[in-house]
Structures are given as structure tokens and as C-alpha cells.
Computed example of a mutant assay.
Amino acid sequence: MSSNPPIPTKPDDVTASWLSAVLTDTAADVIVDEVQVTAVGTGQTGATYRVQARYGNQQPGLPDSFIIKLPHQDLSVRERVSPSYRSEHSFYTDVADTVRAPVPQCYHCEIDETGADFVLLLEDLAPAVQGDQLAGCDLAQANLAVEALAGLHGPRWCDPTWLQFSGATMPKPDAAFAKGMGDIAKMAADTTLEKLGSAMTVDARETLRETSTLVADWLMLEPDRYCLLHGDYRLDNLLFDPENTRVTVVDWQTLTVGLPARDLAYFIATGLHPQTRAETEQDLVRRYHRTLVTYGIDDYSESDCWRDYRLGLPQIPLIASFGTAFSASTDRGDGMMVAMLERGCQAIRELGTLELIRELS
């Protein structure tokens, strides 16, 4: 809004006066006397901080602690990843209230015309704990995650307005887009194998190569079944309360329009160890499908959902290889990508996904 102070670009810009101004949009005449800003995480696209506030007046309903996301401090990185900021801004301002995905309460979200300056002020969900992609999750957490995912997909299943949604970093593909993505996928797979191939099994390397050659065809399958996807629906982007009774979904920077089960397959096959995945995936897909039905999706059979789950698995090598090829390496990041690729490629082999793509193409 024009009445707001400038968008903060660094933690020192998050002042008591700035917080007072933006919170006044939520509760009138907010007076913040003091703020304390501490880093709680840094990422490849931005930085996250905890903001503790001391009020000079009583403000019922306003917390003493918030989480704030700011852009990356490197200007060149900020410009390169600005589409991610636009996606997250679009989600919280245009989408969040229209779906049933469990998300943090948003107190302020703003972006400038260039997309390079961006701020997101959210509720602090502590003591909720971030999922651990390397360790994997248990069945209770997986159940929560697939139900939450249906809450994203179901309310606006096959909504034609997604076809013109400008907030997606990856829109619903046409033939030209799919071909371009296929070319990039092959390049990203080659780069990933150069960087991480020595840490991968022979089978995973071969599956990654083969899958990359089918991405263009894969993206064009089932064009009449689509919705908005999270795009990176994995454990590191989920927060679980200590009792494992609630999950909250964060990091909406990779919004995609496409086959819904791409999100489902990506989560199940990367978040569970292969043996656990093989033992539980049918039940998890069934739970997701049953939850979709509660949103009125009554023309989508359980057998079609299972086939789409198998069909969605290339989302894993696609996103993991893009992340490896186009982002800076860290020890944990590389280990996470190897784990995701190994788990995902094993699921692709065991469930006959590449054969299914060839059959349907």
C-alpha cells in the first residue's frame, strides 16, 4: 500500500516504526516500542528472521513474535530469483484464502514493481519443527502432509483461472514450453551427474538420464487434469507441531500449474525411505484421494489417482536436478539432493513410470 514505509531490504530496516506501520493494517493504532531481529535461517533465494516485538499499547490478537522473509542480500541473486518472490507474493495475496492448505497467518506481504524487493511477515509457528528431508518422516507426518496437499488441490481443482495465473513460476505447458523444458532438463541432468554422480548408484544415474529424455513428453500428458501445485512439496517446507497433530506448509516460491499428483508423488517418494514408501504409498494415495472427494471431486477415480501418482514421479529428478544445476552447492544441500534422487529414481523404476509415460505418449 502507498501508505506503507519502504520495503525493508535488510534486517536493520525492520524497525519498530516499520512494524507499527504495517501492523496498523491489521489492528488500528499499533505502537511498537522495540524490536529484536535475529536470523533463523538463510536460503538460496532469501533470508528468514525472527522479529520479537514489545508494544507500547495493548494489542489483543497481535503476537510478540513474527517470522519475516527478506530478499537475498546479493543483488545479482535477488534479480535472478525475483520470479520466486512474485510467486510467494501471489500466493499469500491472491490464493491462500481460496484454498484449504494450512499456512501461517500472513500479517503483511509486499513486493515492488521489479520483483527484487519483497517482504513477507508471518506468524511465528514455534515450537513447530521443520521436517528433515534427509531423515525422512513417519507415517503420522505423511498422513498429515497428504491431507494438507488435498486441501491445496481440491478447492480449485481444474479451475480454468489457473490457465491465466501470472504468479506461477512454471505455467501449464504448451508444446513449445514442454520442448524447452525438456532441453533444459537434459542439460540439468548432465550437470547433476557431473557434480553428484560419484555419490549416486549406477541405477539412479541411469534412471536420471533416461527420465530427462522424456520430460517434454511427460509434461504434455493428461492436459485436462490440472491445478495449482506447490512445486517443491517436501519435508523441509513443512512444519509439524510437537504432537504431530498439525502441519503447516511454507515456502510458496515454486508455484506450478500442472498434473496435481506431481506434488503428491514428489512428497511421498522423497519424504519416505524406499521400504516404508513401498509399504505405505497405496494407503497414502488413497487418503489423498478420499480427502479430495470431500472437496467435491467426484469424477476422479481412485485408480486414476494411483496412475497419476505413478505418472507424477519425474517431478523428483526434474526439481532435484534443477536445484543441483542452478544453485550453489552446500554439504547438506548436496546430500539432500542425492537422497531425493536415489529415493525418487528407485520409485520410478519400481512403479514402471517411464514405461507408463511411453505408453501414454
Rank of each mutant, 00 (worst) to 15 (best):
D224P: 08
D236G: 12
D251H: 14
T248M: 09
S212K: 00
W252D: 11
P104A: 05
P223D: 06
A116M: 11
D232R: 07
R358H: 08
C106A: 13
E123L: 07
E302R: 09
T48F: 12
G115D: 05
Y288C: 05
V103K: 12
G231T: 01
A199E: 09
Y107W: 11
L292Q: 04
A145F: 08
F267C: 08
G61Y: 00
D112F: 00
D232N: 06
L272D: 11
V249A: 03
P83H: 05
A278H: 15
R290I: 11
R343F: 04
A339M: 15
Q253S: 14
D138I: 03
A216E: 05
A145D: 08
E355Y: 13
T15H: 13
V247G: 10
S65F: 00
V81M: 12
V293P: 15
L360P: 15
R86Q: 01
Y295F: 04
P71L: 06
P83Q: 07
A128R: 01
L193T: 00
S82E: 12
L356Q: 00
V40C: 04
R50L: 00
A126T: 00
G41E: 01
L121V: 05
L272Q: 09
L351M: 02
T15E: 10
D298E: 07
T213F: 15
A168G: 13
C227H: 13
K179W: 10
V32K: 03
N143D: 07
P102G: 05
P63M: 04
S198C: 13
A142E: 07
S329F: 15
N143K: 14
D183K: 10
M340R: 00
T213A: 11
D117L: 11
D112R: 12
